[in-house]
């Protein structure tokens, strides 16, 4: 019990409290911390698998670049709104078909939305945007252009930061709203109401519908997914390069660091991982206990 008791070696120490043992209270046995476990059940990342996952981040970055490219072209009058609208419509139809094909090819969903419902929501959205585009056009007239640019930049950054990369379908409400806010800001600086309408439809396509299609592709056609990501990235860099060379260089260095360097850092830092587990950890409930309630 106390340190003055003579501990006979014949009586080994036991890790129990109920027995009065002839060891001092601050006695440290050989078995101290023997139940300590390190890095148990740890997930070892492989470089290329991480690169593949990081590709999603890279392509989202490029999506923003593509959107900005369209806006630059529209602002300078190099791209007619009609052309953007028609090509958007074409892309939307192609993407819709692809989405359908991938859905039916994969697991059957519980209650698939009918084509009529899809058409209905598209019609509602387009008519409202079209009706309100003169209003949106003049919305930020009293705000200085610098403020609008700064606001759009912050909002696009917020979109990138809050984007739910692991489960992008449906896109998170914060990221989608930030992106749409930024596109309204940018679109209101364009010359005409039709421009605004075309820009907003394009924003919807890029920020709301494209992530859904890409998620489907990642789940149901994983072989084609990296190719698509690389394609989007190349498109983003090329598009931005045709307008500003500096922007293209910045974008490509950002893409390289996000998709190649950051995974390298993650894999390299793994060896420094030191996770301690032991009997003091809170037990986790792994069973599904909701079956008792529902």
């Amino acid at each position: 019990m106390g340190p003055d008791g003579a501990p006979g070696q014949a009586v080994p120490w036991r890790k129990v409290l109920w027995e009065r043992q002839s060891f001092p209270d601050n006695y440290v046995d050989q078995r101290f911390l023997e139940e300590l476990r390190r890095n148990e059940g740890i997930r070892h990342y492989r470089y290329w698998a991480v690169v593949k996952e990081a590709g999603f981040v890279g392509q989202q970055l490029s999506c923003v670049a593509i959107f900005i490219t369209f806006w630059l072209y529209m602002e300078q009058g190099l791209l007619a709104p009609q052309a953007l609208l028609w090509s958007s419509l074409l892309c939307a139809l192609l993407g819709y078909g692809l989405h359908r094909a991938l859905t039916s090819g994969g697991q059957p969903c519980g209650e698939p939305r009918t084509r009529l419902a899809d058409l209905q929501s598209a019609a509602i959205f387009l008519s409202f945007t079209f009706g309100f585009s003169p209003v949106l056009k003049t919305l930020t007239e009293s705000v200085s252009t610098d403020t609008v640019y700064a606001m759009s930049a912050v909002m696009l950054l917020a979109h990138l930061l809050s984007f739910p990369y692991s489960q992008p379908s449906p896109p998170g409400s914060l990221s989608l709203n930030a992106a749409l806010f930024a596109s309204v800001c940018l679109a209101s600086r364009l010359p005409g109401a039709l421009h605004t309408f075309a820009m907003l439809s394009c924003a919807l396509l890029v920020f709301a519908l494209w992530p859904c299609l890409l998620q489907r592709m990642r789940d149901n056609a994983p072989g084609h997914f990296p190719g698509v990501c690389v394609g989007v990235c190349v498109g983003g860099v090329a598009g931005l390069g045709s307008q500003t060379l500096g922007g293209a260089v910045l974008l490509s260095s950002a893409l390289v660091s996000v998709t190649l360097l950051c995974p390298l850092l993650l894999v390299w830092l793994q060896r420094h991982k030191d996770n301690i587990q032991g009997p003091w950890d809170e037990a986790e409930i792994h069973e599904d206990l909701s079956r008792f309630l529902h």
Binding site: L17, P24, N26, L33, I276, W280
Partner: peptide, 24 residues
């Protein structure tokens, strides 16, 4: 208050286990 608690505290605060007593 227990040997498990001692192990936990020694690890958490990076202590010398000699200055930690167990008194339930």
């Amino acid at each position: 208050v227990s040997y498990t608690s001692k192990e936990n505290t020694v690890l958490r605060a990076a202590l010398n286990p000699e200055i930690v007593s167990v008194i339930p």
